[in-house]
Structures are given as C-alpha cells and as structure tokens.
C-alpha cells in the first residue's frame, strides 16, 4: 500500500486539515507504512462474522423528551474565539 502525495492532499482535504508542503512527503510515507501494516487483517477469514461496533450489544437508552439543562449560552460563549450579540462569528459564508 503506497499513497501518493496527491492522495495525501485529497485525504487531508476530506479531513479539513491544512498540511504544509514539507509535511506531505512525511505523511505519505507514514500513512503508507500504517496502511501496509493494517493489511495483515486480510489474513483473517471473517466471512460469517457479525461486525462488533461496541463492547456491549445494548440498544440505545431512551429518556423522556423533557428539558433537563439550563441555558448557559453566556458561559459557553465566554470561551469562543469570536461572538457578537449571542452568535458565534465565522468568516462570511454567503456572498
């Protein structure tokens, strides 16, 4: 398994991760090495095995649809990078 620089760029874009040009080669090497390593899994016959998503095969617990939390907007926004009038500010999305 060997990833090209172009593939690394594509994965990084999917992951919304800006990587610098000098990181690309190192990541291509490391990721190829990791993917090569995990190819060992192909040696296991898993034909009739049910995938195991979770240690406990439990169904999701439900609760009554009631308000259980108080409004803490100010507290939560006090640690935000940028807020205005109770709203989180991000760069303009719509022109």
């Amino acid at each position: 398994m060997s990833l090209s620089a172009e593939e690394v760029h594509k994965i990084a874009w999917l992951a919304r991760l800006a990587i610098t040009p000098d990181q690309v080669d190192a990541y291509a090497r490391d990721l190829s090495s990791i993917l090569g390593f995990v190819e060992q899994m192909n040696a296991v016959d898993t034909a009739d095995v049910m995938p195991m998503a979770h240690p406990q095969d439990l169904s999701q617990r439900l609760r009554p649809d009631l308000v259980s939390e108080t409004d803490q907007r100010e507290l939560f926004q006090s640690i935000a990078p940028k807020v205005e009038a109770g709203l989180y500010l991000v760069p303009k999305v719509i022109e």
Binding site: W13, A15, R16, L17, A18, Y27, I34, L35
Partner: peptide
Amino acid sequence: YMRSRGEGFGAEVQRRILI
C-alpha cells in the same frame, strides 16, 4: 477549518485523523 486544525493538532493526531 483547515488552518485551525492544521495548526492546532500535532503530528500524531493528524496522522490518526488522516488514516
């Protein structure tokens, strides 16, 4: 998104996110 994550995460975390 991209630069905040690129700057905020270290190399091992980035590798794991990428894989």
